[in-house]
Write a protein that binds this DNA or RNA. Structure first.
Lengths: 203, 203
DNA sequence: AGTTGACATGTCAGAAGTTACATAGTGAGG
DNA sequence: CCTCACTATGTAACTTCTGACATGTCAACT
């Protein structure tokens, strides 16, 4: 029996990005480029990464034995690498999923609201009116996506892409929350008086 | 007339954390320690920083001329430094406030939902039941805070701490969103069937 | 007398994330 | 023919953020 060569994948701790990539790979094998595209929607509503972060992370996952890769000589200057999740990668993902998450979200829009009274009220109201408009557009877009998914049966928890639907539902909730809040805040700043929350802005 | 010594504060770009600290300092002068306490609530619901990040950032803000500091010899091994925002710091903050924010929020809880079907449904449902309970507790806490603030007139946009109230309102919206979503998701995972969103979970 | 926790400020190593640099083939439109 | 966009993978420099190390006083509790 050979000496122990390394302490192996079982003890390797992964980064959040690593688990995000493993999650994407549960949908099937993909190249780094495809993963870069896939972190745009719906995952991108709550997690983003550039290709410059994804490629090195895939190399780390491969070193840990959590993904396998096969190279195909392609047209470009480098060979195309297709990654697939391994049994130990899936086990690691499963173990991570059931750990109750504690990380607090970070929101620049809310941070700006904290100092809202330091800026010109009209200019600041414009910022939140703009935000309300953007969130309304996103909301409409997300609701169309949700309709399409429901028609495809993705709202069923046994559907392999149910996770896409679940993330989209959170996107809808979030945009609704942002929309209501931004409208209220804009009304406050515009009128200069307290506005009851949830009240329709009487213009 | 002396030669130009530096390109000065006017051209200095600040980090988001720098602006967060300036926002806190609009409430009045504070020490690094006090700022560390103040990024806990309500700002901490949407932006956090450790003291190891705050002290160097304050030094950078001072170098840019955006804050002033006075030292008082204290009891500890080092002198206590009290920081105050300067006129150019306030101008920089005002300029930053009206830039429409674009940064997407990051949420680990939503990321886990993306891969929810890879884990044991019962274990995963427990994660979201726990999340629903935590968000309900936070919501109750935030609503009490909001009541206290309303009683103190902080819901008036002319109140100097209106920003605290605005941030808290977003906290309430967010926790409501998380609560509804987590309950829905837990019901989906528990029953193994599609659950209409917003439906009360008939247990 | 000893311990714990709050006050108070800092540094350092490393992880995580962004921006820019670098390379190169294919197909569509002007 | 030229440019542009898309495919495809990587590196390097830099900023941001976390966790651990480091120091020292004072008041309350045991």
């Amino acid at each position: 029996m050979a000496a122990v060569e390394s302490d192996d994948s079982a003890t390797t701790a992964g980064s959040t990005l690593g688990y995000a990539l493993l999650s994407l790979l549960t949908r099937g094998p993909a190249t780094g480029y495809q993963l870069t595209q896939q972190v745009k929607a719906p995952l991108g509503h709550f997690w983003t990464a550039r290709h410059s972060q994804i490629y090195p992370e895939l190399a780390r996952l491969a070193a840990a034995g959590w993904v396998d890769s096969v190279e195909q000589a392609g047209p470009g200057p480098r060979a195309k690498k297709t990654y697939a999740i391994t049994a130990s990668g899936l086990a690691a993902l499963r173990a991570w999923l059931v750990i109750p998450p504690t990380a607090q979200p970070r929101s620049e829009i809310t941070l700006k609201a904290y100092a809202a009274t330091s800026a010109d009220p009209a200019a600041m109201a414009a910022v939140y009116i703009d935000l309300a408009e953007r969130s309304a557009r996103l909301l409409a877009e997300y609701e169309q996506d949700a309709e399409r998914m429901r028609a495809a049966g993705q709202d069923d928890p046994v559907h392999p892409r149910f996770g896409n639907f679940a993330v989209l539902m959170m996107g809808i909730e979030s945009q609704r929350a942002v929309h209501r809040w931004a409208r209220w805040l804009a009304a406050c700043l515009r009128t200069g008086h307290p506005v009851a929350y949830g009240e329709p802005p009487a213009d």
